[in-house]
Design a binder for these strands. Structure first.
Length: 289
DNA sequence: ATAGCGCCCTGGTGGC
DNA sequence: TGCCACCAGGGCGCTA
């Protein structure tokens, strides 16, 4: 389940190992990953271009491709590889001569005999080659909320995003229009660290709770990025290495809370499994705050 | 405007 | 042991 820290781990890997490389070929073995774009369009837009930069927006990875090989510097507009791993997508950097593993969907062959390979057991993930205009019209990107690792992130921003929401806070944290990049793992972890019950009304958090939550979201994401992400399910980095972040509550239903020993509770919220400590995350705000 | 649901997909699990 | 129904879930699009 790649979320912000896992996508950021991949971004850093690609930045280190693929910047400046040209794409000399494309292999597509499952066109469902193109999400409607034809293979011909994808290849025509990608092959011959050079990887100029790697950006992340929420859980999206944006690979910028430029065409500066022509002799005349007639301006060829950039192309963006709009990439989303969804639930089970993986990116690997492998040697082009090595046979792909199972669930291979697409390979970008680089000019150094390496290949950036997209694997996806469920084929929910996507990689499309978009123009700047198309990218600017991509719904998920246009409506994306603020980056919790951004320089301006604070509790005032979080307060604005949650204001007026009458539903529970946990599903609100998963809404990419509210906050960019938070998924099920880090939503549960951040609420646990902030001591906030996942069913608390999103718009009903007091100032001190918002401060704790905004700080917890940022901190847990920073720690996870530093650890190379979380390996739940099957996330690995470009080289196949597992993430080293260890969640305190996520996927630990029935096990003791790391703070108080109470057995962790699992409920379903907005269709998502949710783990919390009924003792450390009270359903009512603390009367002393 | 907001919330809830079905859909996409397949490996793993639990029941019989 | 084998089969099968069922579950998990990010994000989009539709419905209430």
């Amino acid at each position: 389940m790649p979320e912000l820290p896992e996508v950021e781990t991949l971004r850093r890997g690609l930045e280190r190992d693929s910047i400046g490389r040209s794409i000399v070929g494309v292999t597509v073995s499952d066109t469902r990953i193109l999400k409607g774009q034809t293979q011909a369009t994808f290849e025509e837009r990608v092959v011959g271009r050079r990887i100029a930069r790697i950006d992340r927006r929420g859980k999206y990875l944006l690979i910028s491709l430029v065409d500066d090989t022509g002799e005349n510097k007639s301006f060829n507009p950039p192309i963006f590889l709009c990439t989303h791993l969804k639930m089970r997508g993986q990116l690997r950097l492998q040697m082009a001569q090595d046979a792909p593993d199972s669930y291979h969907c697409l390979s970008l062959l680089l000019d150094n005999n390496a290949a950036v390979r997209f694997y996806d057991m469920w084929t929910w993930g996507e990689m499309r080659a978009l123009t700047e205009e198309e990218l600017a019209r991509t719904p998920g990107l246009v409506e994306m909320g603020p980056e919790p690792l951004g320089a301006t992130w604070d509790s005032a921003i979080l307060q604005k995003r949650l204001a007026g929401r009458r539903g529970p806070v946990k599903p609100a944290l998963l809404d990419q229009k509210v906050i960019a990049g938070v998924g099920n793992i880090y939503a549960d972890e951040a609420l646990f660290r902030a001591g906030i019950h996942p069913q608390r009304t999103a718009g009903g958090l007091c100032e001190s709770e918002l401060e704790r939550l905004a700080a917890s979201i940022r901190l847990v994401l920073l720690e996870a990025v530093a650890a190379g992400g979380t390996t739940s399910e099957d996330f690995t980095d470009l080289g196949g290495q597992a993430g080293r972040f260890t969640p305190e509550v996520y996927d630990r239903a029935g096990k003791p809370c790391p703070l108080c020993g109470t057995l962790l509770t699992r409920i379903k919220l907005g269709g998502r499994g949710t783990i919390f400590c009924a003792n450390c995350q009270p359903s009512e705000p603390s009367p002393t705050t």
